[in-house]
Structures are given as structure tokens and as C-alpha cells.
Design a protein around this nucleic acid. Structure first.
Lengths: 400, 400
DNA sequence: TTTGTTAGTCTAGTGGATAAACAAAGTTTT
DNA sequence: AAAACTTTGTTTATCCACTAGACTAACAAA
């Protein structure tokens, strides 16, 4: 909520804001007493008591036993009720589908993964429904049930949640949001995979402490999710973060996007495989060259391949330098499939950055590889639903 | 104001928010009646009346005569009182100092410009004080007097307003904010010149309709100011927008920043002059090669120079493509000294963008050259002070 | 005139925050 | 063990800003 919105300010807004404040405090600092919430937020004790009662009515929090006294009456500790509902998050990849069921704290209750190749939209939709049905049926009973479904997709999603373009899936103008909403009658969020990953890292991963995070999703291509001032930046139409197509070599080779010298031609899985294809590798003739193949070769100490990884790490660094100069972030997180090769990428990447990024940008700057690995996007979309669910619950009842 | 801030919500906040809303409405839609403000904001008529009374007490608005009736009682029209106070904005360049005195609507009352070369900090400080003294003495009497002083500088400014580094001025760690505040006892804002320019364009220039604006300040070097979701994005420490040092050619020449192939080596005034120096130009031997020289040559139809400008326009386009892919902005504005050469830059720039930027990014995208020309930075810092002044005035009296 | 419409003020009522008193349940001191 | 002190959490009275709607003012059209 922002003062520049043309929304009027009244008692409802005040209550909504304070309820959020209390909720946030309990979620982050739990277990915590009413008195501590009051003193830390600056709210009056009575106000906190009343808001806490509301939240308990709504099953979003609960009282655990008494805590330890600090010289007076023992406090009643409050905890966030992560099991008040569950959320479904789906990472729809180019050749896989990963679905998770999480509680409201992002704990994964169930995980279901499928692989496929060159499927039509209809086939993928069918698989998607199957996974959603499965996860729904597994969800433990809870006061709010399934609170929403989120899907991360490898493509361009506009601000209405419509998939404008997913080149690697061969999709155009697919309104998946409406399809799922109609079938399941639940709030649905469709989001670009990089944006989802960024949010996942911010909520549950290595980015929890930072307000300005750039998440580099390095897979077949490169997509980037931007967390600026604590919230996701999507641009005027939702198309921000297409940094895979940032020029890093003006006279470089032509990309399928029409541009020349795009970053992802140099520093993605695609780039790695293209380079490897030109080597004379000890790979069974008919086997397709894949990232996993290269990784196992590198693990076996194949120096040629290791050098290849290092080159890619260096060129990842070039783009990350540009990102640093652009955003002055606290944190850059490299995620998606290439993140698993961090041990060969990290050194050359860091060397490039420390050598060439502007010195003042390097203070307080953290460059990390994702630890959620392949789960960040699914966790991210799940988190969007959770965030949305909770924010609706903060409104006074007459509004809901 | 943001819900995530740990500020509690109470009556004061509500009033502050609604007062802002009413103020904004009157500023933007003036002349406007109380009734119209009420219906457009959704606030109750009584509330509007009371807030308007507050604003009038504070001289921020005033009643003009009655407006035209629409079939009933004639409305009393309200107007923003631009003359309630004045603001000083200074654009401190590498070899010039431009000071303006504006009213609260950004109308320029007085303008004072000085040129110098290779001055020491002390000399510049002296000139700065002279200009401030002059502008202060000229300011017409008003209820609030001079409401603040803003200075735009060609360098890195941290979030405290301290100038960390201004390479072309040869400054390091200069706390100009404290210096001016101590001398004048007024609110002082120090801001990077590109950020200031961006804000100037947003408030008074071609960017007034957009919420996501990227302002490219192309002078000796290139700096970029980012307006995202309606407000200036400064990054974790205030160092965002250093896009002049974005790599656009991995194996390009080494920049003084240590990096290779920086954008500003290809598409700035510096680049233009360096290229021109290699030509055999009809310029008096001892005369230094400057942008103005090149412009007059181009004006006289020197084809070599015109081609040079076109090349620079093309390379500006390369970086702007990267910007578009990164931010998905509604508007990209090219400002500062190179903006005045738009007639030779524009065509090649637009050609590069329309040919190579992703197609979906090009809908609703506007690329413009600044019309405020050299004034945008000074107007921008002036606007920062005004914004700040007004936002303080929105708070209930006990808070001020 | 009369009737209807719009502008702006005034009054009563409402929701939610605050301050301060109070009750409950401890610990510490004597 | 009694008394005194601390801390937690609830309750009550008060305050503040918004809303609804009555009311007054000022105009146009019939």
C-alpha cells in the first residue's frame, strides 16, 4: 500500500496495517509474547491484545504454553500457525514439472516431479491437473484448506497473469490463470520463473536478510528476478528482468531474439553445451549432450570441461558486474540449473567481479549460489499465494 | 510510507495520508472545488472541507473566485499556492555551476550560471555560496521563505548525502550537505546528477505521465537515474544507475574504472571527442576539441562529424536496449549535454532499438530526448526539496 | 415563484487507537 | 512466610479522524 494510490485512509486501513505489523512480528520473532510485540512495534498493549484475539479467531496464530518469567508474571507465548492452510506451488519447466505442497511457513509437505519431452499444451495441462489433484488430496485437514495455487513458467507473463510467450514450450497467449481458476475455484498466481525464484530466495532462501536482491536464473537461457526495496519489481507490463538478452558484445553472434551478443549466448546452459559440442568428448555417440553429462565429466576430472565451466563462470561475472552497477544490490543470487555447478563457476565468477566491478559497489555486497536449488521457483510461487492469502486476512471482516 | 516499515498506524497517519491525497488532487487538477475533490478521492465532503481548511491555514492553497455552476450553487475553486515558498536548486557540473530559484510549482524565478575550470574544492565552495546568497536575496517574500536547498553533483552520493567520489571534480568524501546545512540552517539535499535529472523529468518534464522512467544522462560520462513505480530507486547504498560502466563489449578497451568495454567509452561526449580527435578536422590548432565545436561543424554539414554522431546514437541504442530488457520501462529519456544533439542521434538510436529490442518490450514504450535540456538536474534537486517540504507539512501539527 | 440541483458546513455517530487503572501471576526482599 | 516489587495482559474511559446525513446557501430552469 502506498500513499500515492488513490485509496482513502480510514479506520479500516489503520487496523489492516497494524494487524499486518503484529502478524509479521509474530511470524518472524516467534515465540513472542503480547507484551514484547507491543514494545517492539510501539503499539499500545491493549491494541496488541485485541489484534491478537482477531488473529487467533482466524487461526493464523495460537498460544503455546507460558514462557520464562523475567521477574514478573510469565508471558503467554504466541506462535504463527503454519498449518492453518496449505499452498500449492508448481514449477513448470521446459521438460519437467515440479509440484510442491507447502504449509504457510514454506515447509514442504509433499513433492511430486515429472519429466517429459516435447509435449503439447494439452498434454502438459493434463499432467498439471494430475499433480494439482494429487497434492490437493494429500493436504492434511486445516482451517483454511488449500489457500491458492501458484505456477512458475519459463516465459513472459503480463500483469494479468497471462502467458504472452514461452518460447521453449512453444506457447503463445495462454491464459493458464483462468483455466486453473475455473477448474479449482481458488486464487491462482502465474509468474515468470525467475521472478518466482527471486521471491522464493527472499522468503525462504539465502536472501532473507536483504531488501535488494537480484536473482539470476541460469538455465537453458538466463532470466532475472528483481527484488527492489523489499518487493518484486515487474516493470510497466510485467516484462522486466529479460537480462538474458542484454548485449555484452556489440559485434557478437546473432541471438534468436534478433539482437547480437546476448549474455545468455555466453553464460547459460545452452552456451555451455554449444561449446562442449565443439570438443571431442568421450561421450557415447547417440547420447545427447546434456548438463548432467558435462557435470559427471567434470566430476571425473575432465580438465577440458572444467575449463569450460570456468569460462562460463567468468562470463556470468561479466553480466553480474553489469547488474551490480545497475542496481547496487545487497545480494546477487545465482539459481536454477547452473547453480548446481557452483564449485567450478564460483572462483572465476568472483575473480571477474572483484577485478572489474566498481570498488564502492563491492562493500556489503554478497554473491551467493542458491541453496534451495531447483526448488526456489516452486517455493516462490507458493509464497506468492501465501502472502496474498495473509494480506487478504488482514482486512477487517466487512471487507472480505 | 510502506506497510513494511515498522511504523504504527493511527489517526495521525490517516490524516497525513488524506491530506496528501487532497493536496495532490488540488495540485494536479487545479482549479478544483471541494466537492470535486471529495467525489474524485472518495472522501467525505466534510473531511475534505476540514483538510482544505488546514491547508489554507498553512498557505499551501488558496480560494480563487467562484467557478461556473453546473445547475446549482457555484463552486469555490481551489488552487495550489505555488508562491507559498521558494526552493533553490543547483546543478554542480564538472566545469560549470547552474543555480536556479523556483517556486513550489517548479517555475524558474531566477537563473544564475557560472563557468570555471580546474577549480579547487575551496574555490567551488565559495562560488556555490555566492550563488546561494544571490538567489536567496532575490527570492520574493512568501509565507514559508526558502524551503530548502538541493545540489546535484556529478558523482557518487551515499544515502546520507555524503559525496563519496566525484572523479571529474577530483573530490573524495566531501560532506557538502553538512557544510551547507550549517551555513544556511535549511534542509539540504545532495543527489547524484542523474538521479536529480530523472526526478526533474518526472516532475516537470516529458516524464510526467509515466511511473517507470529511465533517465540516461549522457554527458562526459553516462549516468542513469531510475524512477521505478513512481519513486526514485537508489539501491542498497545509493549507488545504483552506474550504467556508464556497463560492459557492452567483453573484449573492449580498458576503462579508467578498471572494467573493459564500458558503455560510456562508446556512447558519451568523451567517446565522441575521442573519435573526432582521430579525424583530420578543420579546427584551429590550439583550440580544444569540445562538444560545441563538433555541433557547429555538424550544423555546417560536415558529413564526417554527422556520421560520428550517428555512430554514437547507434551505440547509445545498444545500451538503451539493455535498459529496456532490464526494466521494461514506459519511458526512456535521454538528457544532459548529448540531448541537444538529438537531431543527429535520434534516427540511428531508434533504428537500433526497433531492430533489436524484444518485440513485446516495444509496445507502449516511449523514447524521448529531454526538453528541459540542461535544467533537468537543477529542477530535479529543487523538486526534491519541494517534495520534502510538502510531505513534512502534511503531518499533524504536534508532529512538526 | 416554485422546484430542483449542486456546494459546502454542521452534528451525531462510529471505529479504532491510546493512556491509565487494574487484575493476575510471577520474583525478590525482608 | 509475608511484604514488596515486576511483568503480563485486560478493561475502561477518552480522544481523534472519518462517515452519514441533515441542513444551509446559492444557483438554474420551469
Amino acid at each position: 500500500m502506498n500513499m500515492k494510490e488513490n485509496r482513502t485512509w480510514n479506520h479500516h486501513v489503520v487496523k489492516e496495517g497494524n494487524k499486518s505489523l503484529v502478524m509479521e512480528m509474530i511470524k518472524n520473532e516467534s515465540p513472542i509474547s503480547r507484551a514484547a510485540v507491543a514494545s517492539q512495534t510501539g503499539l499500545n498493549k491493549g491494541t496488541v491484545s485485541s489484534l491478537v484475539a482477531d488473529l487467533m479467531d482466524d487461526h493464523l496464530i495460537y498460544e503455546s504454553g507460558p514462557g520464562v518469567s523475567s521477574g514478573g508474571r510469565r508471558p503467554v507465548m504466541l506462535l504463527f500457525n503454519g498449518s492453518a492452510g496449505h499452498s500449492i506451488g508448481i514449477d513448470l519447466g521446459v521438460n519437467y514439472l515440479l509440484g510442491i505442497l507447502t504449509d504457510l511457513e514454506g515447509n514442504i509437505i509433499e513433492k511430486k516431479e515429472l519429466n517429459f519431452k516435447n509435449h503439447s499444451y494439452e498434454e502438459i495441462e493434463k499432467k498439471l491437473f494430475e499433480v494439482i489433484d494429487l497434492l490437493t488430496s494429500i493436504a492434511p485437514p486445516s482451517p483454511h484448506g488449500i489457500i491458492g495455487i501458484g505456477v512458475g513458467v519459463p516465459g513472459i507473463v503480463d500483469t494479468n497473469g497471462s502467458i504472452l510467450l514461452a518460447p521453449n514450450l512453444n506457447w503463445k497467449n495462454v491464459n493458464l490463470k483462468t483455466v486453473i481458476e475455473t477448474k479449482y475455484r481458488l486464487p491462482v498466481i502465474i509468474e515468470n520463473e525467475a521472478n518466482a525464484g527471486a521471491y522464493g530466495e527472499k522468503q525462504f532462501g539465502v536472501g532473507q536478510e536483504s531488501e535488494n536482491i537480484i536473482y539470476v536464473s541460469a538455465g537453458i537461457g538466463i532470466g532475472v528476478g528483481l527484488i527492489l526495496n523489499g518487493s518484486l519489481y515487474k516493470g510497466a507490463n510485467g516484462f522486466s528482468g529479460e537480462l538474458g538478452h542484454m548485449t555484452i558484445q556489440v559485434d557478437g553472434p546473432v541471438c534468436r531474439c534478433g539482437n547480437q551478443g546476448c549474455w545468455e549466448l555466453y553464460a547459460s546452459e545452452q552456451a555451455l553445451i554449444a561449446k562442449a559440442a565443439q570438443l571431442n568428448l568421450p561421450v557415447p555417440a547417440k547420447q545427447e549432450l546434456e548438463l548432467t553429462t558435462l557435470i559427471s565429466l567434470a566430476e571425473n576430472g575432465n580438465q577440458e570441461i572444467i575449463t569450460l565451466f570456468e569460462e562460463v563462470g567468468d562470463l556470468l561475472g561479466v553480466g553480474i558486474n553489469n547488474i551490480i552497477n545497475t542496481f547496487n544490490p545487497q545480494q546477487v543470487i545465482i539459481g536454477n540449473r547452473l547453480a548446481s555447478s557452483n564449485r567450478w563457476l564460483e572462483e572465476s565468477l568472483n575473480k571477474r567481479v572483484s577485478k572489474q566491478a566498481l570498488w564502492f559497489q563491492q562493500n556489503d555486497l554478497q554473491i551467493s549460489f542458491s541453496e534451495l536449488s531447483t526448488l526456489s521457483a516452486a517455493l516462490g510461487v507458493s509464497a506468492f499465494s501465501i502472502e496474498n492469502f495473509i494480506s487478504v486476512r488482514m482486512q477487517p471482516k466487512s471487507f472480505v
